Computed example of a mutant assay.
Amino acid sequence: MNTIAFVPGAAGITIGSDAKLETPYRAGFDGVLPDVRVHGGTVTVVFPRSFHVRDRRRAGEVVLKGTEPWRIEVRGGTSRLTADLRGLRVTALDLQGGAEQVAVELPAPEGSVPVRIAGGASHVRFGCPTSVPVRLSLIGGGTGITFGERHLGAVGAGTTLADPGWQDGTDRYDILVTGGADTLTVERW
């Protein structure tokens, strides 16, 4: 399994996949360039200390080799992240430090795949295959929550929503948001 980690956060990043890549990843960035370190199966994208997730002058594109399993991590917050992961084998998605303006297309999972947002979520959308059961747990509650066809207003802390069959499913998503959530959507395609 490979891991890609963005430290201390990610802003204006687009993540995609390409099964024909000859290397594990390809990356390009605008503005101040991060230091990209590779050790074993881990690619760490280290942004300079002056990095701030709301800085709109920085952007980047990362393409991951689609024939390999990937764990994707953002440590330190993310803003304006767009990820089309449908061509990947995703083993985990971990967004630490909060997430704002995030759109992720998830592939059909292999096994139970954790998706974590620690620190709160604002304007976050997950798209996933219709046939895949999903559980969404909101530790800090939320407003403007959409889960499939269910449009909810405010929900209290500790709210859990799950598709029928999630408990018995083997290939599924387990989405956990530990902070509060404002305008969070789980859609099907």
Rank of each mutant, 00 (worst) to 15 (best):
H52R: 10
V53T: 07
V53Y: 09
V53N: 01
R54T: 15
R54W: 08
R54A: 15
D55A: 14
R56W: 13
R56L: 14
R58S: 11
R58L: 15
A59Y: 00
G60E: 05
E61P: 00
E61Q: 14
V62S: 03
V62D: 12
V62G: 02
V63W: 07
K65N: 15
K65M: 12
G66E: 03
T67R: 07
E68C: 00
E68D: 13
E68M: 07
E68N: 05
P69M: 13
I72V: 15
I72D: 00
I72E: 01
E73S: 07
E73K: 14
R75C: 02
G76W: 04
G76I: 08
G76D: 08
T78E: 05
T78H: 02
T78Y: 02
S79K: 03
L81R: 00
L81H: 01
T82A: 13
T82G: 09
A83Q: 03
A83N: 04
R86S: 15
R86A: 14
G87V: 13
L88R: 03
T91M: 02
T91S: 13
A92G: 13
A92N: 04
A92H: 05
L93S: 02
L95P: 02
L95E: 04
Q96E: 14
Q96F: 06
G97V: 11
G97I: 09
G98A: 08
G98K: 03
A99R: 00
A99K: 00
E100Y: 10
Q101H: 10
Q101V: 04
Q101R: 08
V102D: 01
V102T: 15
V104E: 01
E105M: 09
E105N: 08
A108W: 07
A108K: 11
P109Q: 04
P109S: 09
P109C: 08
G111Q: 13
S112T: 14
S112A: 15
V113Y: 04
V115C: 03
R116A: 06
R116K: 09
I117M: 03
A118G: 05
A118F: 03
A118Y: 04
G119V: 09
G120W: 07
G120Y: 06
A121K: 01
H123C: 08
R125L: 11
F126Q: 01
G127T: 13
C128I: 05
C128Q: 03
T130W: 14
S131R: 15
S131F: 11
S131G: 10
S131D: 15
S131A: 15
V132Q: 06
P133T: 07
V134S: 00
L136M: 06
S137V: 06
S137N: 06
S137A: 15
L138R: 01
I139A: 01
I139L: 03
G140A: 10
G140R: 01
G141N: 07
G141T: 10
G141M: 11
G142M: 07
T143D: 13
G144S: 09
G144H: 05
I145L: 09
T146I: 13
F147D: 00
F147Q: 01
E149T: 15
R150Q: 14
R150P: 01
R150I: 10
L152V: 09
L152W: 08
A154E: 11
A154F: 06
A154Y: 06
V155C: 03
V155M: 03
G156L: 08
G156P: 02
G156W: 06
G156H: 08
A157E: 13
A157D: 11
